[in-house]
């Protein structure tokens, strides 16, 4: 067991956890933030993407212990006072989600893209999404939503 302290969505959290606890397990099982989803075992689907210290990573491929002291933002932490993040708004407006399972990781991933590239082209968005698999939308409305959000942000 190992003691860790993380700031998750602005809240300081201290927990004692088994050493092999993945960040995704920590979020889902230990602090009940089930918005972060797990869709594969090989670090490819991207449903589990969260931000750690402002950068996107796959929470299924990071040990919680390794992130001791970090600031974590999950999908639950994006909206503030009930107001959706512009990226969430854009996904809603342009139907960038269907079943919603890949959506949390997708949204967290593209927010990171816009941090690095304020005005990405279609190709840059599609390339960035290499690490996020969606089986429902055919991606087209996701790309449109990212552009919409980029214009608003």
């Amino acid at each position: 067991m190992i003691k860790i302290e993380l700031e998750v969505n602005g809240k300081k959290i201290q927990k004692e956890i088994p050493d092999h606890t993945l960040l995704s397990t920590f979020l889902r099982e230990h602090i009940n933030l089930t918005g972060t989803h797990v869709g594969c075992d090989t670090s490819q689907c991207g449903a589990c993407v969260v931000h750690v210290d402002g950068k996107s990573l796959k929470s299924c491929t990071a040990l919680a212990a390794d992130l001791n002291g970090s600031k974590v933002t999950t999908i639950e932490g994006l909206a503030s006072n009930g107001k959706l993040h512009p990226m969430q708004e854009a996904f809603k407006k342009l139907h960038g989600l269907q079943c919603g399972f890949c959506t949390p990781g997708m949204v967290m991933s593209v927010i990171d893209l816009l941090k690095q590239n304020k005005n990405p082209s279609d190709k840059e968005i599609r390339d960035w999404l290499e690490g996020n698999i969606c089986r429902c939308t055919g991606y087209q409305n996701i790309v449109a939503a990212v552009k919409e959000a980029a214009a608003k942000m």
Binding site: T34, T36, A79, L84, K92, H95, G100
Partner: peptide, 20 residues
Amino acid sequence: VERKEDKKLLTGRGKYTADV
């Protein structure tokens, strides 16, 4: 019409079987 179900799904408040 924008989807009524999207808000929960976009904010991580969806409830899938594994979340129960």
